[in-house]
Design a protein around this nucleic acid. Structure first.
Lengths: 199, 199
DNA sequence: TGTTATCTGTACTGTTCGGTATTGAAAGTA
DNA sequence: TACTTTCAATACCGAACAGTACAGATAACA
């Protein structure tokens, strides 16, 4: 669908780079805190170029969010493949500390920082973020259910509760990082959280 | 200073009720997501009345925040007086579950939901919230330091880390509540978090 | 070398934002 | 009753918001 005839004036900017710049701005300021002027300045393009390449502000945010999920958050996929439930939790939580304190990016997690509370007009974005968080948590729960079947988690363990616990800690870490918590501080939080897991 | 002569037309609205209404709106929509129109409609007063009684939007938010800290968050003060570190953690975390799921209020915690990410103009509010969260965490740390001296926490315990852990879980719970987590679900998260505390 | 399709840049749209000038109403004081 | 003080309500301000019309520029195609 991008393979149409190449007739006409070619695009003068790299859409991938522009999307990455937009992602950075949304990550730092949140959906509502970001203006189109913020975006066009960071992306180095004009408004009509932005609209023709990405649709409107909401479309652009969703595209940036997808890029984020497939980029910075890809560590989650690997974490879920760890051999034990404790290993999964370790990789998730330590992975989160690195992601949320990467000096190349704003602190915290876009799925938390993007739109926790907002006006009615941004409500669809808020819900999209909540749905993505819930989907991630469900993936963790499924992994823990498997771990329980495999005897890797004790028989009295509750996979849903453990998944929610891990999610809650990661989301709290986003708030902490946004408030200036250092990488070392978050790692010590993770060490404590991991006491909940056998192994 | 409110006891000046009562000359002149008296105020036609209850400032306390109006402030409570403003708090509810800020709590639900966040600082930037709330417009002056949202506020005046909820408070049942006109703009000039709002400005004369509360100053500008930022002043009003700070007043609402103080009301919040002295009202809904007052359970923290009681929690810190529990006899043991574990008791403190229990009261903090279970208190948070009730506060964040009180059907009379929006879900979550205003100090988290108010302004996690925002534009430059709201940056002072963002920092105020971060400072208040840090102050609360410091209070918990001091309480845990005392517990360690009293032998109530083991000698190898790190009060600062434990305080950050409890804060992190509470902040994560705010995100969870904002996403629709139920009271029972949050209570089970708390049960897991409390495994970190001896007793 | 035209023609056509697409992009870029300027300048603009209507709307909403936070904040205020102004006028008239309502109370206490004399 | 006349006066002073304070509040309430309308109507407005300039600025910023998301989004777009339009004209000029640049490429592939015939």
């Amino acid at each position: 669908m991008k393979l149409k005839t190449k007739i006409g004036r070619p695009r003068a900017f790299d859409t991938d780079e522009a999307l990455e710049s937009a992602l950075q701005v949304f990550w730092r300021k949140g959906y509502e805190g970001t203006s189109l002027t913020d975006l066009t300045e960071a992306m180095g393009i004009n408004r009509p170029s932005l609209y023709s390449a990405f649709g409107n502000k909401e479309d652009l945010f969703r595209k940036a969010l997808t890029r984020y999920a497939e980029g910075s958050v890809s560590f989650v996929r690997n974490a879920l493949e760890a051999p034990t439930a404790r290993g999964v939790a370790e990789k998730l939580l330590y992975g989160a500390t690195e992601m949320m304190n990467d000096p190349r990016n704003p602190p915290g997690c876009l799925m938390v920082q993007g739109a926790l509370s907002c006006s009615e007009t941004a409500e669809p974005i808020r819900q999209e973020l909540a749905a993505r968080r819930a989907a991630g948590q469900a993936k963790i729960r499924e992994r823990f259910e498997r771990a329980k079947k495999e005897g890797d988690l004790p028989a009295d363990a509750n996979p849903a509760d453990l998944a929610r616990f891990v999610s809650t800690v990661m989301q709290g870490m986003s708030v902490q990082a946004s408030g200036g918590a250092t990488h070392a501080e978050l790692r010590r939080v993770v060490q404590l959280a991991l006491r909940v897991f056998p192994g």
